[in-house]
Amino acid sequence: MNWTANDMDTYLQQREYIDTLIVPLLKVETKPENMKSSSSSSEFLMHLTTFIETQFKGRMMLMPPFAYTQSMDLTEMAATLSQDLSVASFKYVFFLTTDSKWTSIEMDGEVIWLPSIPLESMDPQLRKSIIEDQLRQVLPRFTEKWSEQ
């Protein structure tokens, strides 16, 4: 499900089925020399999360991305975010990011870090297969959590 009014209606009716929250964490760099790589990785992250959403529409809710700039305090952001997301009462919360800093931060939920792949120069066919490969990489993380119970 996407964070749209229509999908939200479905979610509110089917809460027992849609139990997983996907939260993209997006680093926005403002130094001119880093802007290109920052935009590239945000493109990658958004493509990937959108693809995951279409594959698991009926079980996952995709949140709008949480964006932050390079000097923001992530530990504080993590604490506030964990606290606020716990109100939403999703059984499973996954944070997807291309920023490796998150791997060392304590969060309520699973942090999935992925190295960014520059998709911009690829033709659509290749881009699709790369994104599919990436999903295959993260899929075990999801199924592992789902089967825990």
Partner: peptide
Amino acid sequence: VCKHLGCT
């Protein structure tokens, strides 16, 4: 598209 909630 799954007829339940639209997964693939």
